[in-house]
Amino acid sequence: MSARFIGLAILTVVLVFAFGLPWVSTADPVAQSLILALEPPSAEALFGYDHLGRSMSARLAAALRLSLMIAAITLITTAFIGVALGALASWRGGWLDRALVLFADSVVALPALLIVLIAGLILPTQPMAFWAGLSATLWVEIFRLTRATIRAQIAAPSVEAARLLGFGPLYIFRTHLWPELAPVLRATFALTFAAVVMGIAALGFVSVGVRAPTPELGLMMVELLPYWREAPWALLQPVLTTMATLLALTLIAGGTTE
């Protein structure tokens, strides 16, 4: 059984739980019932309740949906920016190539946390700040891989022949360059997705991410940490959920290079 298959299986379970639970449960992730505070898992509530009597299953599913949707939108944005700028730099070369490489190096020099915090001051919602801040930093690796791969292929006989026949850059990219580029980027896309999930959880853990009562994996860890003696099972749930998601994406990324 390959690592990629195991990763896909774990990710499928995570996705089914995150997006399927609202169809089978009516529990509100923010509804409080202090009489149920820290009630352990039971037949009626398989994941139990947190310190405010909120359904842990509903909160975990909502937190996963938030992280996965932000990660998906961020990945689409970073992939578009990185591939477009990388292709432009390698195709044009010269001063434009040097300018884009210098710009990418400048972005890497800035702390990602600082960019996310600045985006949070400008944009009206924290999810938008996550998307803008993380997209502004994570495109660089995709840019570098795209630039290096296309530079190696740009002088290939098939590309030269297409140029001489008068085909445009878009046709050449779609027909000759993208088939060589896509396998290189698959692992990077999975790792970028994992980096966004981990970044959102890390920012929530240091209390600069999503604000309560919105469910978020890192924020849930912070909220439940004072109760680890009374209800260790509650604290372990967001930790294990985050670990399972990251493990699945890492296995998928590793499997694409086999």
Results as ranks from 00 to 15, higher is better:
residue 234 A to W: 10
residue 236 L to K: 10
residue 109 A to E: 01
residue 162 A to S: 14
residue 153 Q to E: 13
residue 8 L to R: 13
residue 87 A to Q: 10
residue 30 V to T: 15
residue 33 S to C: 09
residue 40 P to V: 03
residue 79 A to I: 01
residue 239 V to M: 14
residue 50 D to Q: 06
residue 197 V to L: 08
residue 218 G to N: 03
residue 177 L to W: 05
residue 38 L to C: 07
residue 23 W to M: 11
residue 192 T to W: 00
residue 58 A to L: 07
residue 120 G to H: 00
residue 237 Q to I: 09
residue 119 A to L: 11
residue 88 L to F: 12
residue 182 A to S: 11
residue 4 R to T: 04
residue 50 D to H: 07
residue 9 A to M: 12
residue 207 S to G: 07
residue 119 A to I: 09
residue 21 L to A: 06
residue 144 R to Q: 14
residue 14 V to I: 15
residue 17 F to I: 10
residue 69 M to S: 03
residue 170 L to G: 06
residue 235 L to A: 02
residue 96 L to I: 12
residue 81 I to H: 04
residue 67 S to A: 14
residue 181 L to K: 03
residue 115 I to D: 08
residue 174 R to Y: 03
residue 152 A to T: 10
residue 154 I to Y: 10
residue 27 A to P: 02
residue 221 M to I: 14
residue 165 L to K: 10
residue 99 A to Q: 09
residue 92 R to E: 02
residue 203 L to K: 01
residue 164 L to H: 00
residue 58 A to R: 09
residue 129 A to P: 04
residue 103 F to Y: 14
residue 210 V to S: 07
residue 224 L to P: 10
residue 62 A to T: 14
residue 35 I to Q: 15
residue 207 S to A: 10
residue 49 Y to A: 13
residue 236 L to R: 11
residue 145 L to N: 01
residue 79 A to C: 02
residue 135 S to Q: 06
residue 192 T to I: 08
residue 207 S to D: 09
residue 155 A to K: 03
residue 98 R to D: 09
residue 77 T to S: 14
residue 153 Q to G: 11
residue 141 E to V: 14
residue 132 A to V: 09
residue 17 F to D: 11
residue 81 I to W: 08
residue 219 L to F: 03
residue 247 L to H: 01
residue 10 I to N: 09
residue 129 A to N: 11
residue 155 A to N: 15
residue 239 V to T: 14
residue 159 V to L: 13
residue 29 P to S: 12
residue 65 R to C: 08
residue 81 I to F: 11
residue 237 Q to T: 15
residue 161 A to Q: 15
residue 48 G to T: 06
residue 18 A to W: 06
residue 168 G to V: 04
residue 136 A to K: 09
residue 67 S to D: 12
residue 221 M to N: 00
residue 126 Q to F: 07
residue 22 P to L: 08
residue 244 A to D: 09
residue 173 F to L: 15
residue 104 A to V: 03
residue 179 P to T: 01
residue 88 L to N: 04
residue 170 L to Y: 01
residue 206 V to G: 03
residue 217 L to H: 05
residue 159 V to N: 04
residue 74 T to K: 02
residue 124 P to Q: 07
residue 97 D to F: 01
residue 115 I to H: 07
residue 175 T to P: 00
residue 152 A to R: 12
